[in-house]
Design a protein around this nucleic acid. Structure first.
Length: 300
DNA sequence: AGGTTGACCTGGACGC
DNA sequence: TGCGTCCAGGTCAACC
């Protein structure tokens, strides 16, 4: 299940392989659920565009596209994702008055993979999109469970994602996100419109490292707990990115290589096993509709 | 409006 | 062996 570190690994891998390439042709599978923008809109936006760079926003892989010659002002009516008030930082170098370039958004869902392949390599089962590049290689989006989503957006300042970026947010701002929030802290971490990029693995792992009960109401965390959670989350995410993410189920990077952070999991997937800190049996509960593992002794 | 729940999907693990 | 059942979870719509 790709979360922030896995998506970052994928985005970096794809970026290193395809940056600067021109997209010559686009094929899509016709599975409607996969396409948040219409397939025609995606094909129109990608065909003939150059890939300026590939990066990550939240759990989304973002491909910046550049048109050769003039970026025509095509009235593209329903760019449904309206940009937010723009107060958030971002690398918004869109000059005033100029139309923002389009971006191709790839959300991997649960089982989505973004592969860069030679054309003679047979298409994997469940391939939903193929971008044929100028040098003959292909970018392939493969997604068995079809929770992944492809779309095209054009936002001034670039796609910002639904929530705050957890890897760079400061401790103060992080703590403020949970003021007046009555939901469980774990549910808050999973809520992408609060912070984006955190999923089930890193929510459980950061709460364990911070010693906080997943069910504790977000607004009831003390200042010290919020500071501890902020530090734990950033540390866990940074470490996981270093190790290429967690490979559970069938996550692999752009080369089909697995990550290694799963070896560092202290609670995720370890229900019933002994806490590595105190030796108590780890408990499994459901929070925010998600399986949650925690140590009843270390997490208060 | 904030919070909660279930549907969407399919492959893999498990039990009989 | 093979079949049925359950589980995994990111996101969104629907509901409370």
């Amino acid at each position: 299940m790709p979360e922030l570190p896995e998506v970052e690994t994928v985005a970096n891998g794809v970026d290193a392989r395809v940056r600067g390439q021109r997209i010559e042709r686009v094929w899509t599978s016709g599975k409607p659920q996969t396409f948040k923008s219409s397939e025609a809109e995606i094909a129109e936006a990608l065909t003939g565009a150059r890939i300026e760079r590939v990066h990550r926003v939240g759990k989304t892989v973002v491909m910046d596209l550049r048109r050769e010659g003039r970026e025509m002002q095509i009235p593209f009516g329903n760019d449904s994702q309206e940009s937010k008030d723009g107060s958030r930082g971002g690398v918004g170098q869109s000059m005033a008055g100029q139309p923002a370039s389009r971006q191709f958004l790839v959300h991997l869902g649960m089982t989505g993979r973004l592969l860069v392949s030679q054309p003679e390599v047979p298409l994997p089962l469940h391939t939903h999109a193929v971008l044929s590049l100028g040098d003959g290689r292909e970018v392939r989006f493969v997604d068995a469970r079809r929770f992944g989503r492809l779309s095209v957006v054009r936002e001034a300042g670039g796609y910002a994602g639904p929530g705050e970026e957890p890897t760079t947010i400061g401790a103060e701002a992080f703590g403020a996100l949970f003021k007046g929030r009555k939901l469980a802290i774990k549910a808050a971490l999973l809520n992408q419109s609060i912070v984006h990029g955190v999923g089930n693995i890193y929510a459980d792992e950061s709460l364990f490292r911070a010693g906080i009960r997943p069910r504790k109401q977000a607004e009831r965390l003390t200042k010290a707990e919020l500071a501890g959670l902020h530090a734990a989350l950033q540390q866990v995410l940074a470490h996981a990115i270093e190790l290429g993410g967690s490979s559970v189920s069938d996550y692999v990077d752009a080369d089909g290589v697995r990550g290694f952070f799963q070896l560092e999991h202290k609670v995720y997937g370890r229900a019933g096993a002994l806490c590595l800190n105190c030796g108590s049996a780890l408990k499994k509960i459901v929070v925010g509709g998600r399986t949650t593992v925690y140590c009843p002794r270390c997490q208060r």
